[in-house]
């Protein structure tokens, strides 16, 4: 599970980009694009914590804030 989790996560991001691009080229309506974005968002937040916790320390945390 942990091995394929990063793949699932990154595919969900790729899918989100794809949904907006498919809307851009008139292949899907906006409502459908919005539904896909929501489903893939849920997928990202369910799957990503499984593997990203391990590498969080290496990428640095969001410990200060932007203006």
């Amino acid at each position: 599970m942990i091995r394929i989790a990063p793949l699932v996560s990154w595919l969900s991001l790729l899918g989100s980009l794809l949904a907006s691009l498919l809307f851009f080229v008139d292949q899907i309506p906006l409502d459908q694009a919005k539904s896909v974005l929501l489903i893939l968002a849920v997928l990202w937040f369910l799957v990503t914590p499984v593997w990203m916790e391990r590498s969080a320390g290496r990428t640095g945390g969001r410990e200060r804030s932007d203006s």
Binding site: L13, S16, L17, A19, S20, L21, F23, F24, L30, A33, L37, A41, W44, F45, T48, P49, M52, E53, A56, T59, G61, R62, E63
Partner: peptide, 23 residues
């Protein structure tokens, strides 16, 4: 902070989607 690390890549993609859909 851990949640932020997880959310950031997704938020970047949603910001890109804002642009593509908006355009």
């Amino acid at each position: 902070a851990r949640f932020a690390n997880i959310a950031v890549p997704w938020m970047v993609v949603i910001f890109i989607a804002f642009g593509i859909i908006g355009l």
